[in-house]
Design a protein around this nucleic acid. Structure first.
Lengths: 190, 190
DNA sequence: GGACATTGTTACTCAATGGTAACCGGCGAG
DNA sequence: CTCGCCGGTTACCATTGAGTAACAATGTCC
């Protein structure tokens, strides 16, 4: 019906597809569903994306970058570990609160068991862990340090998953305070 | 070919299906795949399970109980919070090491976005969090306490996911030591 | 005002796969 | 021996959904 310039249509499709995929998962959402939600027909999707996988992957990457960027920006200013931890978690939970569908897409267990997709998500959490690892000053093996870093990232994910499942609104800054207190105390103890 | 008594066949199917589902995810694995892996044909599966969903659900429940039982047994003896924490994590990581496919089934993001399945898994992590919540003695709202409990459960999941993705063997007791140290220190700080 | 490009639609193909109806064969009981 | 139960197979149906070919409409530039 209403025609849109190519780039705008592409953006809109990404927007809409994010919601649909986040709600129904990769397999639960059909290309027809997405097209309909965008007020358009299937072939239009294929004018902008080679395949369903391609569209999904584009979303994973975009959303992942949004998350990592906001964390990076937030922690850039901080100098000491404690405020890095605090600001990092705050950025994470703020992102969850704002980009709710994004969180469900990445961590809501709708991502199929596809190797390529799993790897994409793994890279994102690995990046977050990479940034966390230096905060662990303990005298342990590099491997253990990374495992613990993943544990800390898992804290944010675990807390967020529950908050998102509850569906209620929540105050990201308050959650961040509590979780980062817990995390930082743990870090100092090692 | 080789005939088996019904109960034995049922067990074998569950066994085989766990591996197949864990590797390929719910949608990635076809009933034919599972049948073939069990050395049998499709209709046999339907003699023991009403549907693919039914089979998958049976697995989720069984594996979930295996996890929760081992944690419950391990922590039952402990009296103080610190050793409860420690033993709980140890049971978790030992379970991951032993029941590797089970971990991938529950937490490996192959569980589709199906409501029923998601709820099943959510119930399991919620149970674990339920057991963790009393360890948090801080003066915070009940809701915050539960969110933090989920954060702690997320620690175990996050660390495990990395370990499983790496593929190498790992010493569950050593990981448990490190993670529980981190967690317990955090708990005391609240 | 007509030609070209861009955007979009209708209507289809084709493969995968969940699920089923009908049939087979061996083994134990009477 | 044969009858019937039990575990198993072959061969099929029906649906769903990704992806495409061919066609229509909407500008916009000279």
């Amino acid at each position: 019906m209403s025609r849109l310039p190519a780039t705008a249509r592409r953006e809109q499709i990404l927007d809409v597809a994010l919601d649909v995929f986040a709600s129904s998962g990769f397999h639960g959402a059909s290309m027809n569903d997405i097209a309909e939600a965008a007020g358009v027909t299937k072939p239009v999707l294929y004018q902008h994306f080679d395949s369903k996988r391609d569209l999904y992957k584009a979303l994973l990457d975009e959303v992942g970058h949004r998350l990592l960027d906001s964390i990076a920006k937030a922690t850039a200013e901080a100098t000491d570990g404690k405020s890095q931890t605090h600001l990092g978690f705050r950025a994470y939970f703020r992102w969850v609160a704002v980009d709710n569908a994004g969180f469900r897409l990445l961590f809501g267990s709708g991502t199929s068991n596809d190797d390529e997709f799993t790897v994409s998500v793994a890279k994102i959490t690995a990046s977050a862990a990479e940034a966390t690892a230096p905060l662990i000053a303990a005298d342990i093996s590099e491997s253990s340090r990374h495992t613990l870093a993943h544990a800390l990232v898992g804290m944010a994910e675990g807390a967020s998953r529950r908050l998102v499942e509850l569906g209620d609104d929540f105050d990201p800054d308050q959650i961040a305070d509590e979780v980062s207190t817990l995390a930082w105390a743990g870090l100092r103890a090692l």
